[in-house]
Design a protein around this nucleic acid. Structure first.
Lengths: 185, 185
DNA sequence: CCATTATGTCAGCAGTATTGACATATTTCG
DNA sequence: CGAAATATGTCAATACTGCTGACATAATGG
């Protein structure tokens, strides 16, 4: 680790002395708020999933399959950035328990296209509902311009290489399943 | 990252039929943006930590000890919401590797007050720097009012019971170490 | 002295991730 | 056609991080 003299220069732009390394003051507040916010954000679904013998990994798979019906296994691996061995385990459980089904690709029979079952959609909607409730509680106190600020902030936090792909995926999924008002159990 | 066209879909309030359950439309975009944003947010530190044989858990411990020098083990357990057995493992590694030290409490010699070593502070600052760089890149494109919006959003996402405690901890740590801000997990 | 507190530790288990190797079916291309 | 590439599945071993339960040590406090 570098034995740099950590000179914190708050927003005031003071010229650096020779050889002195400028290190911007860490955003402690946002760093810690992100940690706590994310922990509680995934905490609600965790409780529901635990009762079904599932974990957070199952949630992610179910979520993206529900949002992108017919996606290939390879697509899922790309999005989740995990190995097929890791995916295989949770996917098998979701299939065995009747939340996800596979169908052969129409043009390429090697492919296994993934779809949620009605039970899978119901569960996915229930979990999304919990997270939406938490988000809506906050956004309700903010204006629409501020919601856009939050969206821009989160989008900007994504790695530049992935950002466009992620935003395209979100937009495409929105078009594909524009409105669902499912009654979650 | 200017040309983001995030589909802002206002919640379509469809009138409920008899006995039909009204469920607000899920905030798919924010749910997914939070997932990807957080993944990349913790991704940078993960790479550095892996080279030292550490994981994300070590990061969290190092972060909060650096931010709150002299905190008790019990305080850390409270903040991280894990068991002492889980903490013990990673804490022991950080101590053995010279990143954290323990000192007896002055008034209560049962307590083990935790402090980072110079190496620990250096590592904590390096990790916080990575996360700060990512955050600053985004905030640089936003105004200071928008930064406050982001802060309010994240704070609002925290469980109501914990929110005040977290915000107090952040404020207190800021006062205690005004010119040092470390990166949280 | 005794109950409580603060901490540490051992043993075992679960969930999620990894790498490496190998198998099977299918498509694509020379 | 036959070989290479692709999409997927699976077995085995390992790592990290969380959990519960049980027990130990030391210090505080009434």
């Amino acid at each position: 680790m570098a034995d740099i003299s950590l000179t914190t220069r708050p927003d005031t732009h003071v010229p650096a002395a020779r050889g002195e390394q400028i290190v911007p003051a860490p955003c402690w507040d946002l760093i810690e708020l992100l940690f706590f916010a994310y922990r509680d954000f995934v905490g609600d679904p965790d409780e529901v999933l635990a009762k079904l013998g599932f974990g957070r990994a199952h949630h992610r798979v179910l979520h993206f399959v529900n949002r992108n019906p017919g996606m290939k296994v390879a697509d899922l691996l790309d999005v989740l950035k995990i190995t097929k061995q890791s995916l295989g385990r949770v996917l098998k459980q979701l299939i065995d328990d009747g939340y996800v089904v596979q169908r052969e690709g129409d043009h390429d029979r090697r492919q296994r296209l993934l779809y949620v079952t009605p039970a899978g959609e119901s569960l996915a909607m229930q979990l999304a509902g919990l997270q939406t409730a938490r988000i809506s509680r906050v956004l309700g106190e903010l204006g629409s311009a501020e919601r856009e600020t939050v969206r821009r902030f989160l989008a900007g936090m994504i790695d530049a290489e992935d950002r466009e792909r992620v935003l395209r995926m979100i937009a495409r999924a929105d078009r594909a399943r524009p409105r669902r008002r499912d009654g979650a159990p």
